Simulated scan of single mutants.
Amino acid sequence: MEEDDRREKEKVKEKAETQRIWSWGAGTDGQLGTGSLQDHTLPQLLRLPSLPSPISSLACGGAHVIALTSGGKVLTWGRGSSGQLGHGDVVSYVLNPKPVTSLDNYFITHGSAGWSHSAFVSDNGRLFTCGDGSFGQLGHGDYTSHCSPFRVSSFVDHFVSQVACGMRHSLVLLKGSSVNQVYGFGSGKRGQLGISRDKIKSICVPEVIRELEDKEIVEIAASGDHSAAISVDGHLHMWGRGFKGVADSHYPQRLISSLRFAKATLGWNHALALTGEGEGFMVGGNHLGVLTDPQSLNSAKQSTVNMKEANLEKIPGLDGVKIVDVVAGAEHSALVTEKREIKTWGWGEHGQLGLGDTCDQTSPLTLSLGCELNEAESIRVFCGSGFTFALTMPYDPSLH
């Protein structure tokens, strides 16, 4: 038995040592984890300190990063001026991944990074938040900022499964609850809380989104002043600030479409959605991120429509290509194909597209990581505000 345990520990250690992580784009707050404060226009292979277990997921915010390990530990780095790193202090930046030791007694399974706040969910359904609380986005019943993660007391008697942080608001999804399952708190100026048809400046105590009570929600998303949720039947619901030519919505509205969506991801001016069949679509966009000819935007009618009637545009140039993941940064986008190719487009001023320049791109282009993936590896991508990460994961045939 001891021999089996030893072998298992060796396998975990080997995976952690062989995992590869790249970053590129804006780095002036240390968010790239390169040990410097420089932007990079090409993917940089990181030389991270030896980790006890491999990184299983990342969350990228305004200028900070949350890393979760397969062993339930949390590391953060980047901008820390609002306490969003959770290290117990306020600092301009942290250059290298640093453990959030106050969460060591918990097994953290989910994390989310907003513009300057962070949230963490443990395997037993507890929610912790830290960082900027000036809009109530931490959910602690006040507008105070915290530099260490504190448990959100409103959910003491509930099991939290997911959290999503926008620019100044947060969403929470409860597990195993047929009603009262999605909550919002923080800034509500553009309707992103979804709790009332009237304008709400901000709230500091989580309130239920009643428009979703009769829907079985399986995924939530937030970014900028936008919010979204996907129901078990694949319907996409969106609310908050309206995209290109679309009015703000102060309550969730189902996007009119016969498609069944498996994932939604939000930027500041656009949303990406992925179907179960591997097709990618976009809502909104501007001259930096729109997928068609930028001139067509100028000639398009700017009549304001309802959010549920927002136009879905298929990501071009990918006919016959199966997409396995889509990710929206603040003003850029990325996707991963079945063949493990990474394609990026949108705003490129900081090099966040990873193409070796600072040009904007209106259609997806394939980037190079500078090396080949082996057969045992798959790749995941994570986008923040002006920066991007990619990391290798053990290959899972079910996802391809």
Rank of each mutant, 00 (worst) to 15 (best):
145 S>E: 08
274 L>A: 10
301 K>G: 12
182 V>I: 05
86 G>L: 08
145 S>T: 13
377 E>D: 06
141 G>C: 03
174 L>I: 09
382 F>P: 00
337 T>P: 04
27 G>H: 05
256 I>E: 14
326 V>N: 10
291 L>V: 15
30 G>H: 08
166 G>N: 06
17 E>Q: 14
232 V>P: 00
248 D>R: 09
378 S>N: 13
313 E>I: 13
115 W>Q: 06
380 R>I: 10
57 S>E: 13
19 Q>I: 06
290 V>E: 00
287 H>M: 03
137 Q>E: 15
205 V>C: 03
328 A>T: 06
122 S>K: 01
159 F>I: 06
198 D>I: 00
158 H>C: 07
221 A>Q: 06
237 H>I: 05
255 L>I: 15
14 E>G: 02
20 R>W: 03
169 H>S: 08
128 F>K: 09
266 L>R: 03
99 P>I: 11
332 H>S: 02
69 T>L: 02
215 K>H: 08
264 A>S: 14
40 H>F: 15
121 V>Q: 10
334 A>Y: 05
98 K>E: 13
25 G>C: 02
268 W>L: 05
185 F>L: 10
356 G>E: 12
118 S>F: 07
248 D>T: 11
4 D>R: 13
140 H>M: 02
390 A>V: 07
130 C>H: 01
283 V>M: 15
175 K>A: 12
214 D>P: 00
216 E>T: 13
254 R>A: 03
293 D>V: 01
395 Y>V: 03
209 I>N: 09
348 G>L: 09
379 I>G: 06
171 L>Q: 11
166 G>E: 08
176 G>S: 05
182 V>S: 03
262 A>M: 04
87 H>I: 12
224 G>K: 04
195 I>A: 03
126 R>Y: 05
91 V>C: 11
218 V>K: 08
53 S>G: 07
400 H>W: 06
321 V>F: 06
303 S>I: 01
289 G>P: 00
49 P>D: 12
198 D>P: 00
187 S>P: 05
143 Y>H: 05
101 T>F: 03
262 A>Y: 00
186 G>I: 12
220 I>E: 06
352 Q>Y: 04
382 F>H: 11
105 N>A: 11
284 G>A: 08
90 V>R: 06
151 R>I: 12
320 G>N: 11
110 H>C: 04
206 P>Y: 04
33 G>Y: 03
152 V>M: 04
344 T>G: 04
290 V>P: 01
114 G>H: 12
142 D>I: 01
374 N>A: 03
4 D>N: 12
246 V>F: 07
237 H>P: 00
86 G>F: 08
105 N>I: 00
82 S>A: 13
314 K>E: 13
132 D>V: 03
8 E>A: 15
136 G>C: 11
233 D>S: 11
199 K>M: 11
341 E>W: 01
103 L>F: 10
244 K>F: 12
193 L>M: 02
136 G>K: 08
168 R>K: 13
126 R>A: 14
165 C>I: 08
162 Q>F: 10
18 T>H: 07
103 L>S: 07
155 F>P: 00
181 Q>K: 15
244 K>S: 13
250 H>W: 10
312 L>S: 07
371 C>H: 14
85 L>H: 08
86 G>R: 05
98 K>G: 00
139 G>F: 12
221 A>V: 05
187 S>N: 14
28 T>G: 10
166 G>A: 07
154 S>C: 13
372 E>A: 14
232 V>M: 02
